[in-house]
Nucleic acid binder design. Sequence first.
DNA 1: ACCCGGCACGGAACTCAGTACCGTCACAGC
DNA 2: GCTGTGACGGTACTGAGTTCCGTGCCGGGT
Lengths: 216, 216
Amino acid sequence: MAAAFRLFLERGYEQTTVDDIVALAGVGRRSFFRYFPSKEDVVFPDHERCLADMTAFLAAGADDEPVHRVCDAARLVLLMYTENPAFSVQRYRLTRQVPGLRAYELSVVWRYERAMAGYLRARFAGLRDGTLRADVIAAAVVAAHNNALRSWLRADGKGDAEAAVDHALEHVRAAFGSAAVPPVTEGPDDVVVIVSRRGAPLWRVVQELETALGRG
Amino acid sequence: MAAAFRLFLERGYEQTTVDDIVALAGVGRRSFFRYFPSKEDVVFPDHERCLADMTAFLAAGADDEPVHRVCDAARLVLLMYTENPAFSVQRYRLTRQVPGLRAYELSVVWRYERAMAGYLRARFAGLRDGTLRADVIAAAVVAAHNNALRSWLRADGKGDAEAAVDHALEHVRAAFGSAAVPPVTEGPDDVVVIVSRRGAPLWRVVQELETALGRG
DNA sequence: ACCCGGCACGGAACTCAGTACCGTCACAGC
DNA sequence: GCTGTGACGGTACTGAGTTCCGTGCCGGGT
């Protein structure tokens, strides 16, 4: 990885062949592909682990409010970037100007988004437009996260990335948090809602209330 | 293109080499790459034109309400798919199971999204969190569009794609549109009773309330 | 009729990523 | 000692994409 990044920064990504890297690193060409399935993977060494962390994180918690949970999952990705700001900034500059790397990054981001959407789809299962909401919210969360992350990266890693992402995610939660938070199916055992036309006879309302509370 | 798709459907995308295609089509290998910059481009022949159409469409109108305009831009893409349902369904099936094609499609979708986001950024210039809003809304519109489009494609192109996309986009507009119309038609006449056991999280109460009010 | 400009096409050879196969070496166990 | 196992490296291959060059075609000018 060190050899690869040295060459990438010296003469560019596409001008660097795998043979160059392994020659500088003093290892065999075959060994390179043992550790990195493709040349692009050298640039994104930790995404695979981060993706696994996220899926585990999402699989773990189902008691939280869904959108909140997904926002926290996004913060996991941010952590990976802020752990090593200098590296992240270098990689960002590289990715921005090499189409192949951009395409690869897109596919990685897409997997994050699908993980979130899958989680939300499960939480929204059975609801009206459940998958639609899941997909839209996942996309919005990813977009907000990336917006904040990229402006942090453009600023060479200066500034408070966490605060920026928090602010961006809050923006999403404001749009979807209250207006688009769907109901849960398993709700009725602890929350009961009765809707009644004004003018409906009182006894009917009371009856609904009593059956809802199981005291009927 | 005809030769390529015949072979792709017969023996799969990755099992088909460019040499196979040009042999069947009776043209030179060099000519293939003259018309299609890469093997993937054979599968998405019309996206480049559609992308140009969209940027032109967005550049043309600045009097409309921004989100509405972007939704109409998304409908342009849908049109390209519905123009040739059989082809679109075949391509969808191919794209779904070939990782390379999926990555390519992602980069195409990304360019659509960036076109929309660029338009919105210009319209939101000077506003508080303008670029953030632009990015999030563009992502949401794309996600909603793709959700509806994909379910239409999964149904082999049966059903009303326009209606599905309209419904999905309306969902986004309800969350982001400046002129969001409250969906409560007979609200003032309704009475809502919520009963919550002690300890129920607030978000669940909100969810139930929203379901009851039909704001799903 | 002749030449000449551009141009679409095709072929041959090349680069490079990624893969398949195989040989080597170190190290563990009995 | 022998043998299995696992990490490593080399060789040769496939296939995408590029570069260079040669060829035939067509229109216009002289």
